[in-house]
């Protein structure tokens, strides 16, 4: 059991340096010493114990982190904290293959950007924040492995008016999430704007936003407004929507 820490500027720089060099092909060991070196990190206060465990999905990771730090102030945009957590869980957010090699992805997935805090790109902070807002009600965005940035997450969470609106997230979940298979429906996040896909949903809802007070709606009311192209994506109409 460890206690959660916060990487300071030096710690973040050294973690970033490790990421850059790893991406350039150097085979380096993960700099876990930064986690509890007083020159590179401090403890989160009040202290919180944390376990280095496996996460089957982003939802599971978000649920666990919420149980640990969900009630604390000033954690959502704490760059040092999320950098520390990504380093602590590096074997989860950047899994080594059978030969021990890793494919290190873009830095913001592990260290939140200092300039533009696109929290949703961070592999732990993004799911944590979405879980804080909606719990398992945003399964559409939270299913999938914790080491992958979900396209659906990027589409919805990058739009402030979408990610803060329960009607929009609820309707999208209803349309595109398959609760039996516990994953997004096939083709939901198609990169082409095919009829009824999530990209079309975003376009249509943006048009609704100039006409309706979407924050006052229930997900079912928003679903009822959608044009026919979304019908094939809706669950059986005879079933209750929620």
């Amino acid at each position: 059991m460890n206690q959660i820490g916060i990487l300071n500027d030096v710690g973040i720089r050294r973690f970033a340096d490790f990421l850059v060099r790893s991406r350039a092909g150097e085979e380096l060991s993960v700099p876990v010493e930064l986690l509890d070196d007083p020159t590179t990190s401090t403890l989160l206060l009040p202290t919180v114990d944390i376990e280095n465990r496996e996460f089957a999905t982003r939802l599971e990771a978000a649920e666990y982190l919420s149980s640990k730090i969900g009630g604390l102030r000033d954690v959502n945009y704490n760059r040092g904290l999320w950098s520390w957590l990504a380093l602590f869980y590096f074997d989860r957010v950047c899994k080594p293959d059978a030969d021990g090699r890793r494919t290190v992805k873009a830095e913001p997935l592990y260290i939140p950007g200092a300039v533009s805090w696109r929290y949703y790109r961070h592999l732990l902070a993004g799911p944590f924040r979405v879980f804080q807002l909606y719990g398992a009600g945003a399964s559409l965005l939270l299913q999938g492995p914790v080491d992958e940035l979900s396209d659906l997450m990027e589409q919805f969470a990058s739009r402030q008016e979408f990610i803060t609106n329960p009607a929009i997230i609820g309707a999208a979940n209803e349309l595109y999430y398959d609760p039996e298979k516990q994953r997004p429906k096939r083709g939901a996040a198609s990169t082409k704007k095919k009829p009824g896909t999530s990209r079309r949903f975003i376009d249509v809802v943006q048009q609704f936003d100039v006409t309706y007070d979407l924050y006052a709606m229930e997900p079912a009311q928003l679903l009822d407004l959608l044009p026919r192209e979304f019908r094939p994506w809706r669950p059986d109409p005879s079933l209750p929507l929620r």
Partner: peptide
């Protein structure tokens, strides 16, 4: 009439 407050992912109405 409604007033909504927001900052990034936080929102109140």
């Amino acid at each position: 009439v409604y007033v909504e407050a927001y900052y990034r992912t936080s929102y109140m109405r």
